[in-house]
Write a protein that binds this DNA or RNA. Structure first.
Lengths: 328, 328
DNA sequence: TTGTCTTGTCGAAGCGCTTCGATTGAGGAT
DNA sequence: ATCCTCAATCGAAGCGCTTCGACAAGACAA
């Protein structure tokens, strides 16, 4: 049974050993005889002992907590963030760590606060932008960290992200296999491109890399009517277009409408593939194949890298996750 | 500038006072002369001092952290969770607290762990079910808490939720105002109803409460083809139906298709209202009015209640948040 | 004057843990 | 038998903070 305020001294008394011995059994930092260890573990279980997190952090200078800083901002797809969070928590727990949630609007001073108060051992920064004011602070603080995304100068930082070049290529490949000779990619709104040039360009590069295909990339706003207009313009400018990749979550539904209005039969004489979360691709008719941002894998990788850094190991500066195409 | 390992002793030395005086200035628990206080605050700012969270928690028995336990499970809409999280973090920071993220799969033993290790001062439990195994544990642990949702026996617990009865009523009202005499509510999949009977019944009750309307409620599966079938059955069984409320996020798009196929012109001779997040109602054509789950308000309320409990105040056992209809 | 409050400050104890030497006893080598 | 090593354990110090009781120094009443 869980008791109120069970301390290491209680465990030690019940097992008939010194408190330090209990500590060593639990941490494994010194060798302890199996008999003693058994007795200690039994006492721990009997009393429902869990070390006091504050005391531990004070004495060992390790909090057992990592922070995740989330963007709260337009353009990020919320479900993906949530999957990310879930994946990160799950992985962190596997390393016996907890996860503290921060939002980007705490900004650099929030980072300074958590670093100075030693409330966390490390940090995962999500949705890093090309010019991100937090990055400089992070460098200065020396708090172990992993970034999701790539800032302009990623020298010496640990960054993890989807391999967007590969994602673009996968889409082009899919369309080519369906027999499309002329293809286009409908991208995110201009604003997103401005903020994160890097990733937009990588998608373009991948999408256009397949030889023998006439491809193009054009940005696309989020609003229904403008989406419709963009699609119409595209279709009249490129009458032989038969393949379309859409990398803009909120637009997908409207794109499908515009195509239907234009008499295109998706899945038959016209093909569409989505870069985005499953939900978006599932909730239109017909359902579309999609390349998803593997949020869970990204989160796992980020947490693992951070753990290795906390343990003093080296990790690769840059890690790109392979995209996966889901057919429907 | 932030220094490495600035302690309260450093601040005290710089201000020429005792460490305890610094502590009292920061906490306001004893009166300190304005001059001394100013000197201390200046030293704090100069050195970039932030109290060591572990040390503070050890000495004061207050961690300054609250946990949020999230459901990671089908049927919960991810964006809503994310909004909830953001709202909770923002509100918690206003009270100088941090937020620890937990997932429901840690279950009751996770609760025991955080309680015993004193890593958090309190807990917010999301998406509580009618029969929720965590609730009993929570009662036993005595960790201050607030629940989102209502378990079967909410006696003595602090619960916060959307007023689902009112939400149902608001939908019926909207349809009535559009001149609908025969209306229906398409609900969630059976599974959800089984799990959370309480909330489903409250919506039904509200929806059917308006006199002079012929209403009915029927559950609806998530899968596209089955949604279509359900809608077709409904329309042929009730040829005079002109108003529909949809309380099933993934189904909305498919419902609209089915209605279009059946020749209904939504917004003209037929009216539809959604209970769910904005996104869902915005991404169909035409865009639909919706009653959203006010995630941010819920989160704020929950956090505030928890803070008051931590400060030893009383809070109402049960708080219902008013739904809001957004026209589009 | 002396005694009594009040106000502002200090010093020390202690929160529960980890960790660093020190200590003990057993086993091996000489 | 003696010395050395090594494994297993203990005791004490100390992590950085809060908080309690004590204590000067005025302010005020007697």
């Amino acid at each position: 049974m869980a008791g109120r305020g069970v301390t290491i001294a209680d465990v030690a008394a019940r097992a008939g050993v010194a408190a330090s011995t209990v500590s060593y059994v639990l941490s494994g930092k010194r060798s302890i005889s199996p008999e003693t260890a058994d007795r200690v573990m039994a006492a721990v279980a009997d009393l429902g002992y869990h070390p006091h997190a504050g005391a531990r952090s004070l004495a060992s200078r390790r909090a057992g907590v990592v922070a995740m800083m989330f963007p709260i901002r337009d353009g990020m797809h919320l479900p993906v963030l949530m999957q990310f969070a879930a994946g990160a928590v799950a992985e962190a727990r596997r390393h016996d760590q907890d996860v503290l949630l921060m939002t980007a609007d705490e900004g650099p001073s929030g980072l300074a606060r958590v670093a100075a108060s030693a409330i966390v051992d490390g940090l995962i920064l999500m949705d890093v932008e090309v010019r991100d004011p937090r990055v400089e602070t992070l460098r200065r603080l020396g708090l172990p960290n992993v970034l999701i995304g790539f800032p302009a100068d990623s020298e010496g930082l640990t960054c993890v992200d989807l391999d967007f070049t590969a994602a673009g290529r996968v889409c082009a490949d899919y369309l080519a296999e369906r027999g499309c000779g002329e293809i286009a990619l409908l991208g995110a709104a201009e604003a997103v491109y401005e903020r994160r040039t890097g990733f937009a360009e990588r998608v373009r590069e991948g999408f256009l890399s397949r030889p023998g295909l006439r491809g193009e990339v054009r940005p696309c706003p989020n609003y229904p009517t403008e989406v419709q207009r963009t699609v119409k313009e595209l279709l009249s400018a490129r009458p032989d277009l038969t393949g379309l990749a859409v990398h803009n979550e909120p637009a997908v539904g409207h794109v499908m409408h515009a195509l239907a209005d234009a008499g295109k039969r998706v899945g038959e004489d016209f093909h569409v593939v989505v870069i985005g979360p499953d939900e978006v691709a599932e909730r239109v008719h017909p359902q579309l194949p999609s390349v998803l941002v593997p949020a869970e894998t990204l989160a796992q990788t980020a947490v693992r890298h951070l753990m290795r850094k906390l343990d003093g190991h080296d990790v690769p500066d840059s890690t790109l996750i392979e995209p996966q195409l889901t057919l429907r």
